[in-house]
Amino acid sequence: MSLRAAGIEHGYDGTPVLQGVSLNIDAGEVVGIVGPSGVGKTTLLRILALFERQDEGTVTYDGTDVWTATESERLALRRRIGMVFQDASLFDASVSRNVAYGLRVRRSWRERLRSSVRGAVRKNGTPDAVREALDVVGLSDKTDQHAPSLSGGEAQRVSFARALAYDPDVLLLDEPTSDLDPRNTSVLEDAVLAASDRNIGVAVATHDMHQARRIADRVAVLLDGRIIEVGPTEQVFENPDDIRTAKFVDGELVY
């Protein structure tokens, strides 16, 4: 699996946000996309997740240009990609129903209807994939809990489990731990590493350099809509090519 963005240019209302960004995410690697707030990290992830079509450039998945593919092909490609947002945005339903959602939309309407009818008559058991995904984030004891009653940290972990449950090839995480306490952050970081062990390619957008250093195999530094540096994590941190990277790593303002 390889998700590849090449020469991406994108803007809103005439204001350029991304200017010639290229990045690839391969199976089993964790790519940290780092940079201060407002440099276009979210926009880049939304383009990689096929939420938006870039103004210029190409996004390819295993060599297939996603935007020249047919709509059904694109849906199939989109379903190989998972995305987790800064806020959990859980549905007003039980934890297990939240986590099962991705599996549910992948089934035919007939199967969905049958499972709903069965669920109305007697309680459906929690699918294995749902239990496993919740296990990864340490919440397998919360399957029946009402999602809105979870704490912020737990909600974000469920949000991660939602993306993991349908076994994507790529996971895109947009500042997944920026609102979390250290314990929940640590659980999520472990979950990211567990995902990469499953050969899932992960891209994490973060403004937390330390987090990038802890979990990323490679780091791409995004500044003012451009990737100014990309390389193995240690190299970027220890021996950066760009003076602005060195400053950002040292915690100085670079924007």
């Binding site: 939420f51 998972g82 995305m83 945005s89 991705g102 939309v105 992948r106 949000s159 993306a163």
Partner: peptide, 18 residues
């Protein structure tokens, strides 16, 4: 209904109808 909820459903592979 918060736009982020719609985004979440879409991100998990939902179609417009979903």
């Amino acid at each position: 209904v918060d736009e982020s909820v719609r985004d979440a459903a879409y991100a998990m592979g939902g179609t417009r109808l979903d």
